[in-house]
Amino acid sequence: MTDLNTLLLHCRSGFEKECAAEITARCAEAGIYGYPQFEPSQAYVLFICYEANGALAAMRTLRFRSLVFARQWCACLSRLDDLPAHDRITPIAGHVAGLPQSSELMVEVADTTEGRELHGFARKFGSALAQSLRRDGLLLPRKQRAEWRLQLFVLDGRTCWLGVARIDNSSPWPMGILRLKFPQQAPSRSTLKLEEAWHYFIPVRRKDEFLSGGMTAVDLGAAPGGWTWQLVKQHMFVIAVDNGPMNADLMESGQVEHRREDAFTFAPPKPVDWMVCDIVDKPARVTELMLQWALNGWCRNAMFNLKLPMKQRFDEVERCLEYLQRELAAAGIGYRLDARQLYHDREEITCWLSLNQAG
């Protein structure tokens, strides 16, 4: 098998440093050593493993969903340069033969202005490449199950990265981006952050368990109501906590009670199914607030954002999440905690804390 010692990780532009620090730390914890390479604002990071096929070992050992800053990843060959414009498929096909067998091809570009301009070319070329590989037996029939997915990351018309990703340990969406349409009735675009979080964190098979009509919720820092709108859409009854005004149409739903109170001192009259929080404050202070709700048993689930500082963002995330986990464990509270910088997040990450579950 061809040596796959390079991990390629997609991330939000401007967060390459955090993505690189995280994959370096997680790989070292698993006994996989190497070094990261990236350029500012290129929206992807390379991690070069010292050992042969180290990238494959990482994909088999690390849990992709445990990574906060990586949107997508794959184990790659060395970069393919100077592909002939008259026939790019033949040299790529020659490398595919040495990769783990796959039944599907995912073609990706960087989430940058330059990358988005390549979308049309990448889509058409990917379709032609898949047809050729399938015809030559280098890509399994569509209905045949395989452990791996073939991935092609296009840098320009003559340069690309070729690799594979485990289907059950990577994002199902190209570049790890779930495309959502902004609902015109929603009070603010922040509504997409909560919608994406539910799609990402909650398995489809368990949606009715976590999101069903008649549930109760609290939205801390709710105004003007972007996240409350999502809760109402799920037919929940919501206490919206904010000193600012709520959207008038949202209040007419009859499902929202507006409390003009400080979100950091508010206590619910009784426990609720969901607490959501998109407050702009220091991540350590928001983490302390989330811990208070968990220790007091005020909610079953919490979805919250941590707004990150300009510097030491990865370190701040590590401190906040480790503190929350340590305190919950010390209190004997069962929990599940997941975190991710979602596509609709900006200088923040989104966390899901589900209580009374195995971690």
Rank of each mutant, 00 (worst) to 15 (best):
S354D: 03
R340C: 12
N169Q: 07
L4P: 06
A52R: 13
P183V: 03
R134L: 05
I48W: 08
Q37W: 10
I92Q: 04
L306G: 03
L337I: 05
R145E: 14
V238H: 00
V45K: 00
A52N: 11
F69V: 10
L139A: 04
F69G: 04
P224K: 04
D3A: 12
A339Y: 01
G254A: 00
E252C: 12
A55E: 08
L178K: 14
Y200G: 08
D262H: 04
H199G: 05
R142I: 13
A57R: 12
V154F: 05
A223N: 04
Q230H: 02
P172C: 09
H258V: 10
N243C: 08
E347H: 10
Q144Y: 10
F38P: 09
F237R: 15
A331F: 00
E22M: 02
G225L: 01
V204S: 15
M290D: 00
E322K: 14
D249L: 14
L118I: 06
P245D: 13
L83Y: 02
E347K: 10
D242F: 01
K307L: 12
Q144N: 08
S190N: 03
N301W: 06
K124I: 14
A186G: 06
G115F: 05
F64I: 04
M175R: 05
V241F: 07
R79G: 07
P224R: 03
D208F: 11
C160W: 06
A128L: 14
A146E: 03
V107I: 12
G254D: 00
E347I: 03
I333E: 08
W198V: 13
Q72L: 02
C160R: 06
L105C: 06
E108N: 09
V68C: 12
Y35D: 13
W73I: 09
V164K: 01
L342W: 05
P269E: 12
F69S: 05
A165R: 10
D136N: 14
M246R: 05
R326V: 10
H199K: 11
N301Y: 09
H344Q: 11
T113K: 11
D242C: 04
D208A: 15
Q72H: 11
P187E: 00
A217K: 04
P36Y: 03
R346I: 01
P203Y: 11
L138I: 10
R300P: 08
F153R: 11
P84W: 04
F125I: 09
P174H: 10
G34E: 01
Q234D: 14
A130S: 15
A110L: 10
T113Y: 09
P224N: 06
W148Q: 03
E209F: 13
C49D: 05
E252N: 13
R205I: 10
G94P: 06
N169L: 07
A30Q: 12
I48N: 13
L220H: 08
R71P: 00
E347A: 09
Q151D: 11
Q72P: 00
T113L: 13
L80T: 03
G225N: 03
N53G: 04
H86P: 05
E108W: 05
E261I: 07
A222S: 12
Q131L: 15
G226K: 04
R123K: 15
